[in-house]
Nucleic acid binder design. Sequence first.
DNA 1: CCTTAGATTAAATAGGCTGC
DNA 2: GCAGCCTATTTAATCTAAGG
Length: 325
Amino acid sequence: MSDSLPTPTDCDSGRKRSSALELGPRKKSCVQDPLTLLCNGIIFFGDLADGKSEEELTATERRELKVFRELLKQIPHFESRILESSEEEVIIMADLHQIQKGANGARSDDTKGIKGTVIDWITPKGQALSPPIARNSKTGRGFHHERTGALLCPAGLDWSNNDIKEKLRAGTIRVAGDQWPLVLYDGFRYDPEDPWNGLLRSGILAAKFVFTSPSSVDQEPKATRSGNARIHGMRAMTKASIAYIATQVRFSLTSAAVFSRTDLVTDSERFYNSIVDLLEDPEEKDEVDSLLTWWNRQLFSAYAEPERPSNTNTALAKIVRNAWP
DNA sequence: CCTTAGATTAAATAGGCTGC
DNA sequence: GCAGCCTATTTAATCTAAGG
């Protein structure tokens, strides 16, 4: 990390931009326009090769060139790769970061929305939660609340057993991501005799909220414009979108304030993967097929023809989301 | 080895904007 | 006036480097 970049005071934005483009496993998101940076860098190199002097560049261009050089230095073989690659490949590399950025933003929007409305559909009809849960805060959720605790309780465990309840609250019993909570089951009822009974058929409202539109959750939708599904040409639920919704719902019930794939307490990543694993298991194909059919009847029976997909980063990201979050 | 301050990052949040 | 998109700001977690 001995960074030879002198970091003049007027150049900190440049540093950010360079680090944002590392092609490592970690995604950096503060870059404004990675594509421009890459393209300009290549153009600069071409100009310099043609005998153009560096002094002819503007201050901004020199700074950009500097960032570009730093980039080449930091990433092994990046120089040869980028100078050999076609224009299309450069665009793809830059877009990957934009898409990741869009995906993060979209997920964040969903988390925010579900956090509020989930309160409505875990509240028994005509009753109130006691104690009440704030719509905009995660405090008071998780195992410490009777309702969210019951829904988060692993399906095989008995929440009404005080000993178990206390151990869940104290953390003596740690719930891993592949121990599925009761909230995944239709009517919040788990059937030990038939584990498939109702499994993954509970998050309709959340799915509608995300995919069709927030108001499509209500009896009388007041949508005045198209929702996500129609905008992005989504015609059906996929295995990944079912797992995505389940993950969002599960997270919304926890008291954790920050969504993190790698957080081992919420264990969201393992939870998501465990559902995808089940849905992709060839031996479960029949059950999965009928599950998908069921979901599509719930969500898309009223959806006739989707519009053409739009082209924004977020739109691309949401398409990606249905294949890989 | 551990602590600690500072930097860096991802994510949450509020709120504004646009198109219908 | 809704739905989705976008931006600026805040917050929390993680990393780094220096010092004890």
